[in-house]
């Protein structure tokens, strides 16, 4: 009996060990190494340097560009979260009823989801291009020529231009999720509300939103946490943080500190600050995902 117990235990350990080791090595330990390195002034990737306590954090927080990059990151995350979810939910509601061509449409709007951010970014750099980009051409044709901007080289609009690309890539994704969520709501609910004389807005407010609560929250969190980290690729290929740091996001600035300024300590201090911000939302996401589990 005892050996059976031991065998079970060995079985459990061998089953979870590979996953635990990998997560420790490439998520948990990096977190500690990041926190540790952030206390040193160093240009070396492998340790060493002078211990300077929390000074790297002071340097980071006194660095205007870092603040700017955090602000841009938040702007990016908030912008794409609102736009993707409003568009995704709006389209899903509009197209909830069966209609001809819907399947084709669903397949088509999902194509950009399969693109890499690099391809997406390069493609859109050309769409925005003042020389032969189709956006300006299009605006001229339809008489909106007056609204033409220097999409990527005007510091006032460049960040928004990049956000729009991210929204373009992901709206189909959110729409499909919302469509699936809507399909799960029982039509009886709407029917009885219609009998009670509820209008479209009332139905949306008192049936759709509460029924889709978990889906909406999860979609918002996925978009939001994604907004903190996915922006690197797009910014890198479209503007590389310019003009005048107007599109610098946290990750591009952290990498710049590492590879260009060789300031490993400060790059790590900024990483830890970013982790602290993002993990709050990541934790919320985890809570919601596992709470649904318990309900099952």
């Amino acid at each position: 009996m005892k050996s059976r117990k031991l065998r079970d235990r060995i079985f459990i350990i061998t089953m979870v060990a590979p996953a635990l080791i990998l997560l420790l090595a490439f998520v948990v330990i990096p977190l500690f190494i990041g926190a540790f390195t952030s206390l040193f002034q160093t240009t070396s990737m492998t340790g060493g340097g002078t211990f300077i306590g929390l000074k790297n954090y002071v340097f980071a927080l006194q660095d205007e560009v870092f603040w700017k990059s955090i602000k841009n990151t938040l702007y990016y995350a908030v912008f794409i979260t609102i736009a993707k979810n409003a568009l995704g939910l709006g389209l899903a509601l509009l197209l909830a009823k069966k209609m001809r061509g819907l399947t084709l449409f669903r397949v088509a709007v999902f194509i950009p989801v399969t693109f890499s951010f690099i391809v997406t970014g390069v493609l859109w750099s050309w769409i925005y291009s003042p020389v032969f980009g189709i956006l300006n051409e299009f605006m001229n044709t339809v008489g909106l020529g007056g609204f033409i901007q220097e999409w990527l080289s005007d510091p006032a609009v460049a960040m928004t231009s990049i956000c729009v690309v991210d929204v373009w890539k992901w709206t189909g994704f959110h729409m499909v999720i919302y469509m699936a969520g809507l399909q799960k709501i029982s039509p009886d609910l709407y029917e009885s509300a219609a009998i009670d004389g509820a209008g479209a807005w009332q139905k949306f407010k008192s049936i759709t939103v509460p029924q889709m609560n978990a889906t909406i929250v999860l979609n918002v969190l996925i978009a939001f946490t994604g907004g903190f980290v996915q922006n690197y690729d797009l910014v890198k290929v479209m503007t590389d943080g310019g003009p005048f740091n107007s599109t610098e996001v946290a990750l591009t600035y952290i990498v710049r500190n590492l590879l260009k300024f060789m300031n490993v300590g400060k790059a790590n201090a900024m990483t830890i600050i970013l982790v602290l911000i993002v993990s709050v939302f990541g934790f919320m996401q985890l809570k919601i995902m596992t709470k649904e589990d318990d309900d099952e």
Binding site: V27, G34, T37, Q230, I254, T271, V278, G282, Q285, L286
Partner: peptide
């Protein structure tokens, strides 16, 4: 506890830890 530990990656989104991960890889 082990399950929560296994889900740590959901709390910290992919990519945020790139710099210290690079240090681990170098080490």
């Amino acid at each position: 506890i082990i399950y929560l530990l296994l889900l740590v990656g959901i709390v910290i989104p992919r990519g945020v830890l790139a710099i210290p991960i690079y240090q681990v890889i170098v080490a």
